[in-house]
Amino acid sequence: MFEARVLPVKNKLFRFAFRLLGSSEEAKDVVQEVFIKVWNGREEMTDIQNMEAWCMRITKNLSLDRLRMKQRRATDSMEDGFDMQHESLSPHETTEMGESMVRIHELIAALPQKQRQVIHLRDVEGYSYNEICDILELDMNQVKVSLFRARNAVREKLVKINAYGL
């Protein structure tokens, strides 16, 4: 049951956690945590209709918890006089992706949290609006507005890149 219903979604969970955290190691840890949580609650698994959306929701919550913890730690270290560390692509990843892809990666990474979540779920994973509402615990209007803003922010930047090479 667990292997048939939960393990196949591991890559979607990983990509979503990676989009939120910006680190593949941390994303991997989150997926493992999600599996442990699901495993602990496996008795209630039969009551859950959309297992995938449920797992995605746990992934989102655990990733956001981690982000909050990281931010708190970053604020503490700033108070202690240390510089903040920003997540960025490794040189290896940069070479592999190519210049235009790196630009788009940065462009999407710069979007506000909610917009980044929505554009990822729709344009990378191909979820329906209803499924996105379910995963993000938002209403349809919020999802559509976030997606509209995200796509338009991306479009504006792309037009600039096209016109001025910025």
Partner: peptide, 24 residues
């Protein structure tokens, strides 16, 4: 449409990111 194409290619490339069987 070159830049828009990069965006769609980016989405496609993102979808290929995976954990591998060793994780399983």
């Amino acid at each position: 449409l070159n830049e828009t194409a990069s965006l769609f290619r980016f989405f496609e490339a993102e979808k290929k990111k995976s954990l591998g069987d060793s994780f399983d």
